[in-house]
Structure formats: C-alpha cells, structure tokens
Amino acid sequence: MKIILTQEVSGLGTPGDIIEVKNGYGRNYLLPQGFAIQWSKGAEKQVTVIKRARDAREIRDLGQANEVKGQLEGLKVTLTARSGTGGRLFGSITPAEIVDAVKTAGGPALDRRRLELASPIKTTGAYQVQVKLHPEVTASFPVNVVAAK
C-alpha cells in the first residue's frame, strides 16, 4: 500500500514522505490515527504543501540546532501542578505543558512532538527532559515539578 505521511512516524519517515507499507499496517493504524493519507495523484500535490509547512517549523541547520541547545541547557524550567499526599500528581505533566513552561522561562519555541520523556511525569521532583532538535543534535534540560499551594 502506498501512503503519504502527514506526521513524523518513528522508523518510517517525516511528513511528506511517500512510502510503501503493508496493507494492514496502513489501513488499520496509520490512516485511522491520522499519521498518513492514501496516495493518489491529487494527494501527491499536497506533499509540497506539507513539506513547506515542515520547513517553516523545523530548525534550519546544525549551527542553529547547536545554538538552541545552548539556550536550553542553561535554562531552569519549573512547573507547578496540583498534587496529593506523597507528591503524587493529579494526572501527569504533558509535553505541551513542558513546551509552555520552556517558553515562559525565556527559552526557545519547541515542537512538543520532539520531546522525549523517559517515563511519564506523575510525581513532584526533578526530571531530565530530552528534545531532538536535529538528526544529529539532542539537547537535555532539567524540569522541576513542584506542588501547587
């Protein structure tokens, strides 16, 4: 089955890539989840629009990625969340909340889909969050989760 990716899928490719996958994988997972669209001549024209949007959002080159990495590594990010006894949170901290906290702390704008959490953040404390800025550059920065008063 020939499909066009609309979002980045680990191990397959980036938005706008035209790939060949097994029928079941495409029909039962990629298409219903919105990760891809069925390939057609008309849909192939949409690839240019998808790639243009991706280029505007992506970090341009290795130099810019290293510059953003330097900004992130010098940043102290603090998140406040409601918690119960023992520091256990009501819910968990999402990548979107981390991106907002980075922006509030004076850091660069990040794509929430590029954040890599080792495990879900469900308790108060200090965590190390990684963000993949470029295929060759990964930045790591501390996030401190505190209980709301």
Rank of each mutant, 00 (worst) to 15 (best):
D111A: 12
V21A: 05
A105T: 10
K2S: 01
R88L: 15
A109L: 15
A53L: 13
L115Y: 10
G86S: 05
I93S: 02
R88I: 14
A56M: 12
N28G: 04
P15E: 01
E97L: 01
S92A: 05
R88M: 09
G87R: 14
L12H: 06
G34Y: 06
Y25C: 03
K41T: 03
T78N: 08
S40P: 06
A56E: 14
L72E: 09
A105H: 09
G91P: 14
I4N: 00
L62E: 04
L5R: 10
R57Y: 04
D100N: 04
R27H: 02
L110W: 02
I50T: 06
A53D: 12
S119F: 09
S140N: 12
V102T: 05
S140D: 04
Q64F: 02
K149C: 01
K2E: 06
I19C: 07
G24A: 12
E136T: 15
R54C: 02
P142L: 04
K132C: 09
D61C: 03
V49L: 13
G106V: 02
D111E: 14
F141Q: 04
G70E: 07
L31V: 06
L30F: 07
K22R: 15
V146Q: 13
A105D: 11
L62H: 12
E20S: 14
K122A: 11
T6V: 15
L72N: 14
G86L: 03
L89T: 05
A53I: 06
I37N: 08
R82Q: 09
R57C: 04
P142H: 05
I59A: 03
T85K: 14
S10G: 03
L89N: 08
L133F: 13
D55A: 13
L30Y: 02
V47N: 09
S83T: 10
V9R: 14
K76L: 08
I18R: 11
G42Q: 12
L110Y: 08
G13S: 06
T104A: 13
N66K: 15
L75C: 00
G84Q: 14
L72H: 14
G87L: 10
T6C: 05
G63V: 07
L31E: 02
A109E: 15
L115M: 04
L133D: 11
R60L: 00
K41D: 06
P108Y: 10
D100C: 01
T80I: 05
A126D: 15
I19F: 09
R52L: 11
L30E: 05
G16S: 05
A43P: 15
R52M: 06
T104V: 15
I4L: 07
A36P: 08
A109H: 09
